[in-house]
């Protein structure tokens, strides 16, 4: 029997439907469902507002008040509880009516427990990153890597990769790894590319950043 050209066309069309069904299904899985499955959300112990504390605010703290270098050159990335207590000393006289401030007292200051902040830019244990070499010596701005944190009213949602246990911000919030700003991604290649761009390719020797 001769194949019916109409049938054949229909069959071909059907074939494309199946093909696209597969394609679209896979795209949905790959672009939407997979990221949802890969990351779990965790909330920060407190919703800290940089804006409320920062230089522009009524509190008017300089960035260096909390993010400073110790004398041995190590960096106080996130200050300890002691720093908070310097101002938040009396549970009876709160600065705001924010429930977060109450939480700060009841959960941490009273039991003298360090606040278990979730760090967006925490690198793997095998990485050594000296802030002082980048910030002081190479005069890199904080936002080059960290983005505009200082203008945050609320802390971004912390997402952790279920497989690697790293923060989403290492790979970047874009699942494709697309990077628009310098601070969108913090993978090894980004470090290396920047070193190269700055003419410091010798700093791409393995031991410089690995410990």
């Amino acid at each position: 029997m001769e194949p019916d050209p109409k049938q054949e066309r229909k069959g071909k069309r059907d074939g494309w439907i199946f093909f696209f069904a597969g394609l679209i299904g896979a795209l949905i899985v790959g672009w939407i469902i997979f990221p949802l499955l890969l990351y779990s959300e965790r909330s920060q112990p407190l919703n800290f507002s940089h804006v409320k504390h920062g230089p522009e605010s009524s509190v008017g703290l300089d960035c260096e008040e909390c993010h400073f270098f110790y004398e041995d050159g190590t960096f106080s990335g996130i200050p300890g509880l002691k720093k908070c207590i310097e101002c938040h000393e009396d549970p009876e006289s709160l600065y705001t009516d924010s429930p977060e401030e109450v939480k700060l007292f009841t959960n941490f200051i009273e039991p003298l427990k360090e606040i278990p902040w979730l760090v967006y830019s925490r690198q793997p244990d095998c990485v050594y990153f000296p802030h002082i070499a980048h910030v002081k010596m190479a005069e890199t701005e904080c936002r080059v890597c960290h983005g505009d944190f200082a203008t945050n009213h609320t802390l971004p949602v912390f997402k952790v990769n279920r497989l690697t246990k790293y923060s989403i911000d290492i790979w970047g919030r874009n699942i494709a790894g697309y990077r628009k700003n310098t601070w969108d991604r913090m993978k090894m290649n980004d470090c290396a590319a920047c070193h190269k761009q700055q003419g410091k390719e010798h700093n791409n020797a393995c031991l410089v950043c690995h410990k």
Binding site: F69, Y70, D72, G73, P130, I132, K136, M137, V208
Partner: peptide, 10 residues
């Protein structure tokens, strides 16, 4: 070495 450098940078 890295710590010593950091300290020197400071």
């Amino acid at each position: 070495l890295m710590s010593a450098k950091s300290k020197a940078y400071f």
